[in-house]
């Protein structure tokens, strides 16, 4: 069963940036794009156990802080070596100025 989880106020994430969100023993990365849309993926890189929220967001891309593996955070698609496994993405909605992600 899926649930909407309250992450934060939308202004707590800067444009073209990412924050880490931990919930029920799992880590997520929640993004705000340059076009002001919100997105969410698994919190760890698929290549190594590293928090993506420490990485750099440029346009639609999140770059892993460790090895510069790149993913499209809107689709989860891995963009080439060293990462070849896509990131899981989660639905996001903004309601009353709050950001929610759908997990489970």
């Amino acid at each position: 069963m899926s649930t909407w989880i309250d992450v934060c106020d939308k202004d707590e994430i800067d444009e073209e940036d990412v924050i880490r969100f931990d919930h029920a023993g799992k880590s997520y990365a929640v993004y705000r794009s340059p076009e002001d849309s919100f997105h969410a993926t698994d919190g760890h890189c698929t290549h190594e156990n590293v928090h993506l929220a420490d990485g750099l967001v440029m346009d639609d891309i999140i770059e892993c802080p460790k090895h510069n593996g790149r993913f499209n955070y809107k689709t989860g698609q891995a963009k080439g070596a060293p990462v070849c496994v896509n990131l899981k993405t989660y639905a996001v909605k903004v309601d009353g100025g709050r950001v929610f992600i759908q997990v489970g």
Binding site: D54, G55, L56, P65, K66
Partner: peptide, 11 residues
């Protein structure tokens, strides 16, 4: 610690 400096070094 961890990825603390990564983003700034990348930039």
């Amino acid at each position: 610690p961890g990825g603390a400096v990564a983003r700034d070094i990348r930039l």
